[in-house]
Write a protein that binds this DNA or RNA. Structure first.
Length: 412
DNA sequence: TCTGGGGTCCTAGGACCC
DNA sequence: TCTGGGGTCCTAGGACCC
């Protein structure tokens, strides 16, 4: 038996913790660059705002009281960790599934619905985050239960024979996206109940083993287990759209250097090394009338590394190979592939074993203590004004919980 | 003016091996 | 004159998730 604890409008709820004036107001949190809506409160949904709706369409709604906030992922990450801490205190076993969702193993818990209700209340009291809990024999059923719980009092259990399955659009089932949804509809399968009852061969044919597994889960046969320890990542990517388009190679190099160093810091946090570096940059695909160019390159390293300097050399080599003047670039990124822990690497017959650079651990320690860009490689150094490529964030809340100088003030 | 970022898994097909 | 069987690895593309 699984329970899925899912925060309601998580990013918006996190914003409301330290800014009570936002409570009961329509609120939307925007993606990086203030691009589009990524979290909406019920009040905002009532204004007809869609997930992913572009920000420029939302601006006029401010006259109706809509508040827009830039994304503050440092805050959301910290609040998420606090929610998980509370869950961990009470749940026998737990899988952190995403920034705002955790699966709990609730086998053996008596009176599971009131137990989940108390858990919700505790999370709310200790973190200020409201959540809903779905319960089911499989993760897929718990997911459906969670959908119901959002609108029906906070906790909801769903079984495979539940009549509610006929009320769910097949596209609402976890694992059924728009492509499978269309395919299923073409075969007359429109609801979760119809997917549950369809021919197994047909489902296998439409969506392979993945969709077949989803069907089995709907029938109440667990196919997906609780994964308590997150697997080590297989790739690490840092990419951004730019606040403004840039054309010169120096600006692009500065952005890529920043992204590469951030990716390497993540790499070292996981205790991994990389042996292949991917670099891409691209013009604005939303401006088809402008000249388009979307180059990418992957550079294999002779020797695995976790040193930002080695990675940066590869990134710049790729940039030199692919850069063409005369284009306005809008987006770029760095991807680290072929990751492995130092200890798991095949030793090189002709070299000393891979070792983490002491310089890099000092850099990481300084940045952890004094803030992200206290020490960087010179190629990402920014003088004075924010560069053109940096993100637009017109309305970001303070880093209330992760920066000592931005702690909220309490009035006496 | 305007449209995010970061991942995973599966499958098919080709190259290559003995 | 004929031309097997069994496998691995890699890549690209497509699907999904939050």
């Amino acid at each position: 038996m699984f329970a899925l604890v899912d925060a309601n409008a998580f990013y918006c709820s996190a914003e409301r913790i330290f800014d009570p004036a936002l409570r009961n107001k329509p609120l939307v949190v925007l993606s990086n660059n203030d691009g589009n809506a990524i979290s909406r409160t019920d009040e905002a949904k009532a204004l007809g705002i869609r997930m992913g709706q572009p920000a420029h369409e939302l601006a006029p709604l401010r006259r109706q009281g809509l508040v827009l906030r830039s994304a503050n992922f440092a805050l959301y990450g910290d609040i998420s960790a606090r929610v998980v801490d509370v869950l961990r205190e009470h749940a026998p076993a737990l899988e952190v599934y995403s920034i705002d969702e955790s699966f709990l193993d609730v086998r053996g818990i008596h009176h599971v619905i009131p137990w989940c209700d108390r858990l919700r209340a505790r999370v709310h009291r200790h973190t200020g985050i409201p959540c809903a809990v779905g319960i089911g024999k499989t993760k897929t059923l718990a997911k459906l239960g969670n959908r119901l719980a959002k609108t029906s009092g906070g906790v909801c259990q769903v079984s495979s024979s539940d009549s509610a399955l006929a009320t769910f659009d097949v596209g609402d089932v976890w694992g059924v996206g728009s492509a499978f949804g269309k395919h299923l509809a073409a075969h007359g399968i429109h609801t979760a109940a119809q997917l549950r009852d369809a021919s197994g061969d047909l489902i296998r044919q439409i969506g392979g083993v993945v969709l077949a597994r989803t069907q089995r889960e709907l029938q109440g046969h667990p196919c997906l287990a609780l994964e308590e320890s997150p697997p080590s990542p297989k790739q690490i990517m840092v990419s951004r759209s730019f606040g403004q388009r840039v054309s010169d190679v120096d600006a692009l190099a500065q952005a890529l250097s920043t992204f590469a160093q951030r990716a390497c810091a993540k790499l070292r946090r996981h205790g991994l090394t990389t042996a292949a570096i991917g670099v891409f940059f691209s013009t604005d695909s939303f401006r088809p009338e402008m000249p388009q160019y979307h180059p990418s390159a992957t550079i294999g390293l002779a020797h695995p590394t976790d040193d930002s300097r080695d990675v940066l050399a590869a990134v710049f080599a790729a940039l030199r190979q692919r850069f063409r003047p005369g284009y306005a670039y809008k987006r770029a990124g760095v991807i680290l592939y072929d990751l492995a822990a130092v200890a798991d690497r095949q030793p090189d017959l002709f070299r000393q074993p891979v070792q983490s650079s002491p310089l890099m651990s000092h850099v990481d320690a300084i940045n952890a203590r004094f803030g992200r860009n206290t020490v960087t490689l010179a190629s990402s150094l920014v003088h004075g004004m924010a560069p053109a490529w940096s993100m637009r964030q017109a309305a970001r809340s303070p880093l209330y919980t992760t920066r000592i100088d931005q702690l909220p003030h309490a009035r006496c």
